[in-house]
């Protein structure tokens, strides 16, 4: 009781390793829910059509999923910081147009230029959000509209064919003959960003910002920098996703990625990342993106009539979120 608190304690007979607050089985299960949901869905599709579980359809599914994985991964960072990025799809579409326009001049450097440009645009949105104190929802809603308009203007409102296919050829290759290169690139993005979050103070800062921005700020975390960085990465990911889309469609179009916004948001929440910020991970979004993609490509394959497809899609998304959301970490469900 009266030992000085600041004095070093007497050398202990080795730290006691038995004090461990192990997560309960239920908690462990919750953190694997996105993967479980993915497996269950795969099983269900296979039961509905035994022919579904083939190498061909799986390869097609992961190849389709690659741009969505990348988009969702970038936006997850913004969501973890407690914001939202609604501009990713519009920015991605704009980037496909840029790609088509720049390719003749820049050649092999186009991919890097696109990623740098979209990263800068993302950073600009982040700066607007932080400095002008405008909610990220509004900033990126405005951005979405602006990017769509710019894309329409510079493309003359139509697709632009990409004649030089060499620049994106590498993305259409297969690793070990079966895994699409674009999906491998998406995995690398998730892996690298996840490692950066896990191994540096960034992870701590991002989560603190997302859970409680004022506490993070008063704790000396570089809240503004972290947010701008998140928007920058989100923009850069939109650029990379654009390159993937171009590699498949051989054209740039001002509306090419527009239908990916809601699937990307769905992927994030199906993964169990809290839309209120703080809790979640990129791995979860990867699993979420695969669930969403499987639904989109799988339901028609197993013979669900297209009229019912959307109903089933909506119902399964809601059910999946009900499964994956870790309610012990999220106090208020908004």
């Amino acid at each position: 009781m009266s030992t000085p608190v600041l004095a070093k304690p007497a050398p202990e007979p080795a730290a006691d390793p038995t004090v461990k607050a192990r997560p309960t089985t239920g908690q462990r299960l919750t953190s694997f829910m996105p993967v479980i949901a993915l497996v269950v869905l795969l099983a269900a599709l296979t039961v509905a059509d035994p022919g579904f579980l083939s190498l061909n359809s799986l390869t097609a599914a992961v190849r389709t999923s690659a741009p969505l994985v990348v988009l969702a991964a970038g936006a997850t960072l913004v969501v973890l910081c407690g914001g939202i990025d609604l501009s990713i799809a519009a920015l991605c579409s704009l980037a496909t147009v840029f790609f088509a326009l720049w390719l003749p001049d820049l050649g092999g450097l186009t991919t890097l230029a696109i990623i740098a440009a979209t990263g800068a645009i993302g950073a600009l949105q982040g700066v607007a959000h932080v400095l002008l104190r405008i909610p990220s929802f509004i900033v990126t809603l405005g951005g979405m509209s602006i990017f769509t308009a710019i894309a329409l203007v510079i493309s003359d409102a139509g697709p632009i064919r990409v004649a030089d296919r060499d620049a994106t050829h590498w993305l259409t290759l297969y690793v070990a003959g079966v895994v699409p290169m674009s999906f491998v690139v998406a995995l690398v993005v998730v892996l690298v960003v996840s490692l950066a979050l896990a191994l540096t103070p960034l992870g701590s800062w991002v989560r603190a910002t997302g859970y409680s921005e004022s506490a993070a700020r008063l704790g000396g975390a570089p809240v503004d920098l972290v947010k701008v960085a998140a928007f920058t990465l989100s923009g850069a990911c939109a650029g990379l996703a654009a390159v993937m889309l171009v590699s498949r469609n051989f054209s740039g179009s001002p509306t090419m990625a527009d239908n990916l916004l809601l699937p990307a948001v769905a992927a994030i929440v199906v993964g169990g990342t809290a839309i209120t910020g703080g809790h979640g991970s990129l791995w979860r979004s990867l699993a979420g993106a695969l669930v969403v993609t499987l639904l989109r490509v799988g339901l028609p394959i197993v013979g669900v009539p297209s009229a019912y497809e959307q109903i089933l899609y909506g119902a399964i998304i809601v059910a999946a979120v009900a499964l994956t959301l870790d309610r012990s970490k999220v106090l208020i469900i908004k």
Partner: peptide, 29 residues
Amino acid sequence: KTEGMVGPMSVADNMTLTKQHARCSGPLV
């Protein structure tokens, strides 16, 4: 509750939130 601590984060992460260098070697935790 709202400004002093980040409630859902661990005791360890709350304690090292500010002085990150105390738990890092170079840039790595």
